[in-house]
Every structure is written in structure tokens, then in C-alpha cells.
Computed example of a mutant assay.
Amino acid sequence: MARRLLRPLSRTLLSPLSSFTKKLIPHQQPYLSFETRTYVSEMRKSAFEGNLLRLLRNEIHYELEHSPPSQPVPEFNSFTVDERQGEQWIRLSRKFGENEEIKVEVTMFDGSLPIKKPCKIGTEEEVTLHITLIVDIYKGEGNEVLEFVCSAWPDSIEIRKIFMRSHDQMAGQPYMGPGFKGLDDELQESLYEFLEARGIDDDLAAFLHEYMKNKDKTEFIRWMGTVKTFIEKK
């Protein structure tokens, strides 16, 4: 009786295909076929991409539902606005007087400055956003350009640099002029008035901040849509 019980038990313990042995020695498990591994991999990929697409669709829907961007404004005062869809900057242009042409290249928000505001428990820190403007002024058929590099804060324009350059290209090592803050105060004031006469003023700064807030949202939604379309491709 004992022998009859031991034989089947020994076969079970020694069999390489027994569940007990397979748990102890996983490397002896039969390999999955190439087709099975490919199928499992495709299923995992499909599930991952499906979840990613769901998240993108939800985010796009949320943005469009709760705070949809408005149509970009094509003009401001005497400036024509070139929206530059899909890019990180816009261009403004206008004529001034009989022989001046003004072009302004404007970045999206590219910096910030911390500020402290009073609150009920003391002060709290916020940030004010910064936009860079490059103002080019051309006169007649000449080859020279007077260029201002400015910062646009939410309600003001700040001149950072002024220099002359060639219409065609920059020189190898151009003299960039003195630091603006190092100029005589009266000269600084006159240069601000020079720009203000051409529409580069605090009102333009306020307009650009609102415009770029809208562009930032528009480009974000466009970016998500582009990513979604790419992932959906087979």
C-alpha cells in the first residue's frame, strides 16, 4: 500500500511540468510564442495610447468648455498684427510719417519678476510676466535700422538697449551702444517720447499682455490637438 502511494507522489514531485516545480523553477516554464508576445505587447501599447488619447481629449474639452480662447485681433491702433500661428512670437507693423516703417517683433511670455502684495496675514508673493519687444525703425531707402530692445510689463514699456544695425545683416562685432540706464536722464526721457510718438507705449504693453494670454491658451490647445492627431495615426 505504501509503495502504491509513493510512486505517484514521486512522479508528481519530479515532473518538470508540475505546477509545484514551475513555481520553484520559473525558467523551466515553456516560452510564449512570438505571436503571443507580439499580441500582448500590442494590447499593452493600445491600452496605454488609449488612456493617453482620453486624457488629451478631456484636457482639450475642458479648455474649450471653461475658458475658450478668442479670435486674435488683427489690428491695434495704427498697427497691423501678424499672428504667426503655431509660433512663439507675433509681428506688428505700421507706417509713420512719410518715410518711416516700423516693425515690432514680440515674443510670448519669456520671463517674470516676483512682486510682493499685502494680504490679510502680511504679504504674499506673486509674479508679473515679461514680454520682449524688438522695435525696428526704417527710414526711406537707407540700409540702416534703428533698433530698440524693450521689455513690455503689464502696464509699461521699458527700454533696455538701443543700437544701429544694417538692414541686411548684423556686422561681425557691432558696437551695441551704451547701457540705456547709463544715459543722461533727460536723454532717456526723450527716447521714451520718441517711441511713444510711434505708438510704442504703455497702452501697447497692456494690449500685448492680453493678446499673449490668449495666444498662450490657443497654442496650448493647438499643441494638444497636434499630439492627439499624431498618436491616432496608424
Rank of each mutant, 00 (worst) to 15 (best):
V73Q: 14
P74T: 12
F76H: 12
F76R: 04
F76V: 03
N77R: 13
N77D: 14
S78G: 04
S78Y: 06
S78T: 14
F79W: 02
F79Y: 10
F79L: 05
T80Q: 12
V81T: 04
D82C: 03
D82M: 04
D82P: 00
D82R: 01
R84M: 15
Q85D: 08
Q85K: 11
Q85V: 14
G86N: 04
E87K: 15
E87C: 12
Q88V: 03
Q88M: 09
W89K: 05
W89R: 06
I90E: 00
I90L: 13
R91I: 14
R91A: 06
L92P: 00
L92N: 01
L92K: 00
S93Y: 07
S93L: 02
R94F: 06
K95I: 02
F96A: 07
F96H: 14
E98C: 07
E98D: 13
E98Y: 05
N99D: 11
E100C: 08
E100M: 09
E100H: 12
I102G: 06
K103L: 08
E105T: 11
E105C: 03
V106F: 04
T107E: 08
M108V: 02
M108F: 01
D110F: 01
G111Y: 03
G111R: 01
L113T: 14
P114I: 05
I115P: 00
I115W: 00
I115E: 10
K116H: 07
K116A: 12
K117I: 13
K120Q: 12
I121N: 11
G122V: 00
G122L: 03
G122M: 01
E126L: 11
V127T: 13
T128E: 14
L129W: 09
L129V: 01
L129Q: 13
L129E: 12
L129G: 04
L129R: 14
L133F: 08
L133M: 13
L133A: 06
L133E: 07
I134K: 11
I134M: 05
